[in-house]
Nucleic acid binder design. Structure first.
Lengths: 210, 210
DNA sequence: ATAAAATACGAATGATCATTCGCCTTCACA
DNA sequence: TGTGAAGGCGAATGATCATTCGTATTTTAT
């Protein structure tokens, strides 16, 4: 859907009193439950409001529209993922290659644990994807990643290093998503994560040689 | 949307006369144009019918519902992709590794050329994904791929070979999709395809060693 | 205690769609 | 040339939703 006037996603007003903060929290939790249990197609403002034990009108006090709820959830997913990866990237107990492997496994694991929510958010993505806000975040934590790649494969040109970092993230998110959508056992998911990391590390080693 | 009664996707009736075959063809072409130009959200039966210069009623003579049109288009995409890959996998002028590279590039290229259509079909996927028919196809052309992998990395156990084949397909579709969604120049797309193939080939070589 | 500010409510509004069905037109064939 | 089958039409139906707004309740500050 191109050329949509791209609706506002920012909160309409911010909660001032304790009860309204609770209300916003209840709406977000309810939104997650609706997405997990009923999927993106059943994600309607009325359903979310009633699952939160709140009226539609109240919902619209704090969210300008349906998309803004989805966007907010997606933002929180991104933030959590960033924290997760950053923690592993900076874990000095492991060497560079092991950190890249561990991060891949951790990402695949959460992607798999939260598969219904992630899938539903993905299905709903067309609703919020084209908004201006959606394109700001993205390349957080890439400095740490570039440093890690340098440690794993010293001597790459900055250009190649940057490309490798993007490749790592892209392979992680793309393959992780696809793997979590087929439903697999945790052991299988781990095997896929390891294979993806192995693929990337093998590529890095060969890049170094050339 | 789980637990939906999964609507029929099979054609309601088959065209008997030339004019109705033309009508079905016109509807499919119009559906493609609507998806490409207006996106999945604007994909309504009325819009498709009027773009085809046909009435909604006529559309429903040959398609039981909206989803069946999307499903039909997706099937045709799959078939075209299978033909493309199979042609390259069996191109005896190239050695195994080169065929795997060439197939990756060709796939990324078409994915990129048809980006708007592919993206819209992906956005609409929730509408037809959970139907029984959707899960039949999938692993076509994998025998040829396994043979190719055996040629590129002889001596893998059948188990590892099968896994590698799945990994190749998964990396291709997942990364290809992600790359086509960011809009990139053809040269960049080629670089991503090459990198993805390189990653896979490096992985294969290291698998052999172990 | 009381007024002003915040919150909460939910029926009503207006729009959009998928799908149907009764009726008309065109085709194939005898 | 007549007739039954196939094809085509599009207004009408029924449902679902996002969003608003007038009103009622609760909180805060004085």
């Amino acid at each position: 859907m191109p050329r949509r006037p791209s609706p506002p996603l920012a909160p309409r007003k911010t909660p001032k009193q304790a009860r309204s903060s609770r209300l916003v929290e209840a709406i977000l939790q309810a939104a997650i439950r609706v997405l997990e249990r009923d999927g993106a197609a059943a994600f309607t403002t009325i359903r979310v409001a009633e699952r939160a034990g709140v009226s539609v009108g109240s919902l619209y006090q704090y969210f300008p529209n349906k998309e803004s709820i989805l966007f907010r959830l997606q933002e929180e997913e991104w933030a959590a993922t960033s924290r997760l990866l950053d923690g592993i990237f900076n874990d000095t107990r492991l060497d560079a290659a092991e950190r890249l492997r561990a991060a891949m496994r951790a990402f695949f694991r959460t992607e798999c644990d939260e598969a219904p929510l992630r899938r539903a958010l993905g299905d709903a993505a067309p609703l919020y994807r084209d908004s201006p806000q959606a394109h700001e975040k993205r390349e957080r934590g890439l400095p740490a990643l570039a440093a890690l790649i340098d440690a794993a494969a010293p001597g790459l040109t900055p250009r190649k290093r940057a490309f490798a970092a993007e490749l790592y993230i892209t392979a992680m998110t793309a393959i992780g998503k696809q793997v979590s959508e087929a439903d697999r056992t945790p052991a299988e998911v781990d095997a896929w994560a390891t294979a993806t990391a192995d693929m990337f590390l093998a590529y890095l080693r060969e890049s170094k040689r050339r």
